[in-house]
Design a protein around this nucleic acid. Structure first.
Length: 711
DNA sequence: CATAGCCGCCTTTTT
DNA sequence: GGCGGCTATG
């Protein structure tokens, strides 16, 4: 049926598309048409008689799933193919097999802030100090355990030192709180599904029968739990197709295990491997620098990027005075591009940390350049949105204490901390869920008459909302918004001027209306679980003519004509938290590689000589990655841009001394050392010195004042 | 019981 | 430089 499309594919692409049965590994470099191959494969399977219902394609984000759905649809693959993320698939499975999985199907999904709240409670329950055992750190550790499928019991028995034992204790309490709240965190979704499939062979078979063909994109970023889930579903039929690029693995910190893709052939010995190394996206010079850079990674399989585009396009490296000048410099270049007729939707700016977006935003506002920041979850973290959602969550899941505590006095209805504490005590004594205790407020002696009346009114309101949970979501959301007096409380704040909060709440109700339209059987439960899994990139609107600002992580899977990557400074990219070991440094390098390979025709890389960190102006060192690009770095025109008031910035241009590897040097703070590497880029030359203290430092030659020692 | 103001911690990256 | 959490005050 789509033969004419197939003819447009390259030989290897076609091979991947047409390989029907059995395990298939597609090792695809950036810009190699990988997504295209998957959608064509879906279309081909359907053409050959496979029912759409029996195909399951897993993408990395909901956004990617949406896009794939559209593309598959345009190829004639009718609706019915299940395309979604691992997390959504797990929600589906856990709801269906709730009993076997040991969960209730109406579970809440807790996001990072809710997790932190519960973890904090857990640390307190263990009578531990939250400064020594910071909830964020504990949570990261627990997350790592879950990604590795270590449940409380197995970890507890294995714990042998003080720290692990303490962590096990916190883990146990944290899980207990989640269970009491009937809530799962992101990692639970994966872990509980993996454990379910490990324990129930018959469920695996049922799922395998349902999903007869499994396709997984971005396989290099799967973690252990995801690996197990995929394997369990595909084992009965062995129709598993994975695609990925080890060089683009950037989620190691989240448990992603690159070995999953590297050892795929061992797991599935009859695997057919197809390599897609031709790149249809970027110009040859962009690919050359990407290639040069990634070649510095030692733990990788050699691979060359093969350019198919004609030469052309620019790579520019700019050095600016500080981050403000950097942002304005970019704004100017964007204006220039726009004047040349380039479309803003084809321009993107990438940065390592979210905090970097603010300065850029200011510059774009000043220069009146329309932009969008790709950070979708931000909408759902607004107070008014969280409040309204908390009401809805309580309706679906009365055990969700986090949500309940959020709304019990929002808007203020005179139920304060003291009252809440008294109810909590009563609930604990009588082993009741918090809402149950509230319902029995009449019986709680410690409560005043007024408090009892207010609680009764609140409970009554919640019960009233519960009338129709199965119908459309939007009308219910609107009703809750008004009758909870949330709307009124927002209005009273905002009558002076902006009513952003009101607009946001209305936007949420609109989104619910959209959801109602998009599905045959809308339910509040399903809606809430869906929006909990929204991710950053999901908010990216590729059709609007605005320049896109995002982190390098969010840039994965996207492409733009013109790409700006900012903050190429030591400590920022590579990030200082990722420099401790070689593996982390390699991941930082891959992150930069991902950024570079998003660019189709021009690439602007920049760094600032000064950057404000924690509100303090600090001198920076250029990123070592800059020298790995293999292009000569010309002396920047930065000096002329330094026309602002700082006596701190040294404008003298003395010739910078040269060093050779092996040269002995003395530094006034670090003492004696030996030069490991010297990078000659004029004024900004850097030198890597291994000091006798054992430390290795990258220093800017012009500030280090190194004394050469000759023997 | 609500609010304002202060202190301290912080920041990778995200489903 | 910004946010959340805690404390003192009305």
């Amino acid at each position: 049926m789509h033969d004419k499309f197939l003819q447009q594919l390259t030989a290897s692409q076609r091979k991947a598309v047409l390989h029907a049965e059995g395990p298939l590994l597609v090792l695809a470099g950036p810009g190699s048409g990988k997504t295209r191959v998957i959608t064509h494969r879906i279309a081909t399977l359907i053409d050959s008689g496979v029912r759409p219902y029996n195909i399951c394609a897993i993408t990395f984000t909901n956004k990617a799933a949406d896009e794939m759905r559209q593309r598959a649809f345009s190829l004639g693959a009718s609706a019915g193919v299940y395309i979604s993320t691992f997390h959504s698939l797990c929600v589906r499975i856990l709801r269906k097999y709730a009993d076997a999985a040991g969960v209730k199907p109406n579970f809440s999904i807790y996001d990072t802030s809710e997790q932190t709240a519960c973890c904090k409670q857990a640390v307190k329950d263990c009578s531990l100090d939250t400064t020594n055992f910071s909830p964020a750190r504990m949570l990261a550790a627990i997350s790592a355990l879950k990604n590795n499928l270590e449940d409380v019991e197995s970890f507890e028995t294995a714990a042998d030192d003080f720290f692990t034992k303490t962590l096990a204790k916190i883990y146990r309490h944290y899980q207990q709180i989640l269970t009491e709240h009937n809530a799962l965190d992101f990692d639970d979704l994966l872990m509980k599904t993996a454990i379910l499939l490990r324990n129930y062979q018959d469920i695996c078979c049922e799922l395998a029968d349902r999903y007869k063909y499994l396709l997984i994109d971005e396989y290099q970023d799967t973690n252990r739990a995801q690996y197990k889930i995929a394997k369990a579903i595909a084992l009965p039929h062995r129709n598993i197709c994975v695609t990925g690029d080890p060089d683009q693995s950037i989620y190691r910190w989240r448990g992603a295990d690159i070995r999953n893709i590297l050892t795929f052939e061992t797991d599935w010995p009859e695997t057919i491997i197809v390599r897609l190394e031709e790149n249809f996206r970027s110009t040859p010079n962009i690919l050359t620098v990407a290639d040069n850079l990634i070649a510095y990674n030692k733990k990788r399989k050699q691979k060359k990027l093969i350019a198919t585009k004609p030469p052309g396009g620019d790579i520019v490296i700019n050095v600016y005075g500080d981050e403000h000048l950097e942002a304005h410099g970019i704004a100017n270049q964007v204006t220039e591009l726009a004047n040349k007729g380039k479309s803003l939707r084809q321009i993107a700016v990438f940065y390592r940390v979210n905090a970097a977006s603010r300065v850029l935003e200011e510059a774009f506002i000043q220069n009146q350049i329309p932009y969008q920041i790709v950070r979708g979850v931000e909408f759902y973290s607004r107070k008014e949105i969280r409040d309204l959602l908390a009401y809805l969550k309580v309706l679906v899941n009365p055990d969700d204490e986090t949500a309940l505590l959020r709304i019990i006095n929002t808007p203020a209805r005179g139920i304060g901390k003291t009252t809440i504490d008294r109810v909590k005590t009563y609930a604990a004594q009588n082993k009741l869920a918090f809402l149950e205790a509230l319902k029995k407020a009449e019986l709680i002696e410690a409560l005043s008459k007024g408090a009892k009346a207010k609680i009764a009114e609140f409970v009554n309101m919640i019960e009233c909302f519960k009338t129709d949970l199965t119908g459309h979501v939007a009308p219910l959301a609107e009703r809750v918004f008004i009758e909870s007096k949330l709307k009124k409380s927002l209005k009273s704040i905002s009558d002076t001027g902006t009513n952003d909060q009101l607009e946001n709440a209305n936007e949420l109700i609109n989104s619910a209306a959209q959801y109602d339209k998009s599905t045959d059987q809308p339910s509040l439960l399903d809606y809430l679980q869906q929006i909990s899994l929204f991710s950053d990139t999901d908010s990216y609107d590729a059709s609007s003519d605005r320049i896109a600002l995002m982190t390098l992580h969010a840039a994965k899977g996207l492409e733009f004509e013109n790409v700006f990557i900012v903050g190429l400074e030591d400590g920022l990219l590579p990030h200082e938290r990722g420099q401790d070991d070689e593996d982390e440094l390699e991941e930082e390098r891959r992150l930069f590689f991902v950024g570079i390979t998003r660019a189709k025709s021009s690439l602007y890389i920049s760094c600032a000589q000064y950057r404000t960190i924690y509100g303090q102006l600090k001198r920076t060192i250029p990123s070592p990655f800059l020298y790995e690009l293999g292009i000569s770095l010309t002396e920047p025109a930065a000096e002329e841009q330094l026309d602002y008031d700082t006596d701190d910035i040294d404008q003298t241009c003395q010739p910078v001394p040269q060093f050779a590897a092996g040269q002995l040097v003395r530094h006034k703070n670090f003492g004696l050392g030996r030069v490991v590497k010297f990078t000659d880029i004029g004024q900004n030359s850097t030198v890597v010195v291994e000091f006798n203290t054992g430390q290795t430092k990258t220093l800017m030659v012009k500030y280090a004042n190194l004394e050469k020692i000759d023997i």
